[in-house]
Design a protein around this nucleic acid. Structure first.
Lengths: 150, 150
DNA sequence: GAAAATGATTTGTATTACAAACCATCTTCA
DNA sequence: TGAAGATGGTTTGTAATACAAATCATTTTC
């Protein structure tokens, strides 16, 4: 059985490919891959430093610096937690949200040639398969209709 | 149509997940994600500095340093090109090949829980879909037999 | 209320990355 | 042929990323 090996190859290849696109698009907005992720996470919620660090698998000191620079650029803000004086909550500024939206659009545009090679059924299948791989199954989709057999 | 958006989400999520695994496994062997890629590329062929840089989307000066450190660790070697005195060819040492193999095994092991959630047919489908996304279609597989409909 | 734990920042060091300047080796072509 | 330009790498300088250890401030625990 070579499929198990093949899928690792394919996953790794796709990973580097997508990561390359993300790095390029991020770079066009002066954002590193990590900063891109931070913006992505903070798009719809605030989070504390340690929480972000744990989620991204980074040291809290690394996170501190990352937040510093993004804050200096006016993309996000540090706030206090009224319940616990030690905690720092991070959330996006309007400018940050604006940038995040632009970047997201660019990413969709940049990946369109790749995803565009798939027909709707294949798209659906790929989403489902990736969700399984990411241990996110099953996806709560907009259309709860008859999704391909699973 | 939300599939086109969903697939970007799924791809990005899977990318960060796989990249996280690669970063972790690499780290266990004191290898950055980039160094991991370099080893992966040089596993079965030699390459010149500029070639590697172009392939990885890095500056040649970055590549130079990367090679420096890997060479200092005894993982790879710089050689001359007899046809063109300017060119530096890079290739793995036995120790580098050894390490690359160990890392690859570890990566397969680390991804096994994720890929293991797929049955053989799903594995096959995922490989094919990812290959299409990576503009690599169709894959020349070990088993040229009746692959699932495409 | 002192000691321990927690959340974040600071400091120091290595790596990654880019750009510009530089050196050596081809290539071109006058 | 021999100077000018192009090409392939390295060096140097700077910034960002990342970790670890030390530090500071604020809870929590006993």
């Amino acid at each position: 059985m070579s499929s198990a090996d093949d899928v690792v190859d394919a996953l790794v290849r796709a990973t580097f490919e997508v990561a390359g696109v993300l790095t390029r698009i991020g770079g066009e907005h002066d954002l590193s891959l990590t900063q891109l992720r931070v913006l992505g996470i903070l798009r719809d919620r605030r989070a504390r430093i340690t929480e972000l660090a744990a989620y991204l698998g980074l040291d809290k000191s690394t996170m501190s610096g990352l937040i510093d620079r993004a804050q200096r650029r006016g993309l996000l803000t540090r706030g206090k937690n009224p319940e616990d004086g030690r905690v720092v909550e991070v959330y996006m500024t309007p400018a940050g949200l604006e940038l995040a939206k632009r970047v997201e659009d660019d990413i969709r545009r940049a990946l369109a040639p790749a995803t565009g090679r798939l027909d709707p059924e294949q798209l659906d299948r790929l989403v489902n398969l990736l969700d399984i791989v990411s241990a996110r199954s099953p996806r709560t989709r907009a259309a709860p209709g008859p999704t391909a057999a699973r």
